[in-house]
């Protein structure tokens, strides 16, 4: 009796462990698609429903579907707030040489700028700065942290 109860408990504990660990891995997976960050932990908002940043794959500056969606929301918000100028801050993860990452950050921020401009936002309202790998948001040394750091952030300039 006692023994079977013990096994039953042990089984439950094991089951709980399995479920929990599955959740944990699922959570990480849910925050990345390929190696592009899709979570919201680090995201801030320019206005309600207008995320301030887009994320990139390793060594890439191509905008993902989700990034384009975010940038269209930013463009709409910028059209409504025609007096606001923005700075696009381009960043890279820590897994590259400093100088190349500066160039890569600049390329990423410009990819975002170009997209905003195709939605009618004047280039005069957008400036670009690259921080390369100098300003990570997540100090971790793992793929998830790196994915959060490969980003272009739209910041109000005035």
């Amino acid at each position: 009796m006692n023994l079977s109860k013990f096994f039953k408990n042990a089984f439950l504990v094991m089951l709980a462990c399995l479920v929990l660990s599955a959740c944990a891995t699922k959570k990480v997976q849910n925050q990345m698609q390929g190696d592009v960050y899709t979570g919201t932990d680090t995201v801030e908002y320019l206005a309600s429903g207008v995320p301030d940043r887009v994320f990139f794959a390793t060594n890439e500056s191509v905008l993902t579907t989700a990034s384009r969606d975010t940038l269209r929301k930013q463009a709409e918000w910028l059209r409504k707030n025609s007096k606001v100028n923005v700075v696009l801050e381009g960043h890279a993860d820590e897994r590259g040489t400093r100088e190349y990452n500066l160039a890569l950050g600049e390329r990423r921020a410009n990819a975002a700028k170009d997209y905003l401009m195709t939605y009618g936002i004047s280039g005069n309202r957008i400036s670009v700065i690259s921080y390369g790998k100098e300003r990570p948001v997540d100090s971790g040394s793992n793929p998830l942290a790196w994915s959060k750091n490969r980003r272009s952030v739209t910041v109000k300039a005035n």
Partner: peptide
């Protein structure tokens, strides 16, 4: 040096 403009260095 490098000069970066419009996404190109």
């Amino acid at each position: 040096m490098s000069f970066a403009m419009d996404g190109n260095s």
